[in-house]
């Protein structure tokens, strides 16, 4: 009964013009044409999208969550990247 492994695709949908494509889920399809059609049927049955991207899952390189400490440390230690780091005299008002 075993069937051949059908490739996995990640689906991204732009819900409105002006918004970015957002990951909504994944699906299996033999090729990109079928993946787009399946994405329409599975993820946009109620007008959820204006545009769909499908990306082969194995084309995605992901960071390793167990190394997130090291990975994101450079951002953690640079508080001077945030506007609140800087003192602006009250008299100046909103800046």
């Amino acid at each position: 009964m075993a069937t051949p492994n059908v490739p996995l695709w990640e689906v991204f949908i732009r819900s409105r013009n002006g918004l970015a494509h957002k990951h909504v889920g994944s699906l299996h399809a033999a090729d990109s044409t079928l993946a787009l059609q399946a994405a329409r049927d599975i993820y946009t049955r109620r007008g959820e999208g204006l545009s769909i991207w499908v990306v082969p899952s194995n084309a995605i390189t992901a960071s390793d969550p167990s190394e997130k400490g090291m990975m994101f440390e450079p951002a953690e230690s640079k508080i001077y990247r945030h506007p609140t780091f800087y003192d602006v005299p009250d008299e100046v008002g909103h800046m």
Binding site: M1, A2, T3, P4, N5, V6, L8, G25, S26, L27, H28, D41, I42, R45
Partner: peptide, 27 residues
């Protein structure tokens, strides 16, 4: 009925993230 199919597919996709293939699950 089409929605039920969609629900099945979202759920299979979620189950697959745990490391069992769709084919194994369906079989």
């Amino acid at each position: 009925v089409q929605d039920e199919c969609g629900h099945g597919l979202y759920l299979y996709a979620a189950a697959e993230t745990l490391g069992t293939s769709r084919e194994e699950l369906v079989d």
